Computed example of a mutant assay.
Amino acid sequence: FTTGATMANFTGLAAARWRLLADAGWNLDRYGLAGAPRIRCFVGQERHDTIDMGLRYLGLGSPTLVPTDDQGRLLADPLDTMLSEGPGPAIVCLQAGNLHSGAFDPFENAIRIARRHGAWVHVDGAFGLWAAAVPELAGLTAGMAQADSWGTDAHKTLNVPYDCGIAIVRDTGALRGAMGLATTSYMVHDAEGPGDPFQKVPELSRRGRGITVWAALRSLGREGVAAQVRGLAGAAARISRRLAEVEGIEVLNDVDYTQVSLAFGDDAITRAVAARLIEDGKVWMSGSHWQGRDVLRVSVSNWSTDADDVDTAVEAVSSAFAAVKSAGN
């Protein structure tokens, strides 16, 4: 358990760095990065910026950007070509849930290609990893379990408080190699069991983050988690369908998960609608920029969102748009 998805991704990438250099015959713990084989990092053009930040923290430099489609999904064929262009260890970062479209990368094809090139695969699933709990959304996450590490943030979709990120790493040796302490004689060690929590994350001093996550999972159960995620995706779909029926409002993405990106003609009108909504205060939807356009970004993430909230959201957006158009006339 980490402080959030940023540190969850950092933890997975740190394990990747440790393993790849160890397999290349380089002792990272002893010699550091100076003189080490260069690790090539590949990310989709529409990855979240915290992936770049984690790579920077780890001294791995700027990643190579892989082209994406119109929904922000990484394209597998260019990834294959780019991995073929140079030797050396590599990390491929995939995404479960694009920030603007909610789209999921093509895990099966991308991971198969990465495996052929000997690359470590990390999945940034800050909010999208939870789609795996819903049977009817299985197509979104198909192949995702074949990766080497995953990061997510329980506060985004499970709705526990902040400071509850989760890092999952298949290679426990790499995880402990990257994060663990060799000697702390004054601490009580768990030599036989799964290991001490501080051996798997960046911090020693840490709160009991797993307690709130356990409580949520224990109270909801498997079906409850699925129902919660299903409800968020369903609310996003209803909001998008109803707003698409309003003349002048354009839904820019395929609404497969919990994200909706809206435009209202030109960028100036879209920015004005976003400002009007925030001033009105009935709903919170942030302005953003995607695919070369300013957008109003709707992210359905609260477990309590119901039909009345959908009605409120649709009415608030429609009214804000009408007010902006009226002011323009």
Rank of each mutant, 00 (worst) to 15 (best):
R271W: 00
A323H: 08
N27Y: 05
A227F: 07
G35M: 09
Q45K: 12
L232V: 13
L60T: 03
R271C: 05
N302M: 13
R218E: 13
D311Q: 07
G88C: 09
R170G: 01
A103K: 07
L175A: 15
T141M: 03
M179Y: 14
L243V: 07
H117L: 04
I111G: 05
A36G: 12
D80E: 14
V324L: 04
F42Q: 04
R207M: 00
W303F: 06
A327N: 14
R176S: 09
L20F: 03
E247L: 02
A263V: 09
V169S: 05
I51F: 04
I39W: 10
L83S: 11
A323R: 08
G54W: 00
F42I: 09
V255M: 11
A236D: 08
R112L: 10
A131K: 02
G292I: 10
A316T: 07
Q95V: 09
S326C: 14
P87R: 07
R47K: 13
G231A: 07
S101L: 10
Y31N: 14
Q146S: 14
D254V: 03
F127T: 02
T68D: 00
L55C: 12
R30P: 05
K282F: 05
G248N: 14
L79H: 01
F104K: 08
L21R: 08
D69V: 11
I166L: 15
A275R: 13
S326E: 13
D306V: 08
G177T: 12
P197M: 02
H48I: 13
A24P: 11
T258M: 07
L140D: 04
T141G: 08
E315I: 02
Y162P: 07
W214T: 10
D105M: 09
A24W: 10
M82P: 00
V300L: 13
G177Y: 04
A16M: 10
L181R: 15
M7K: 15
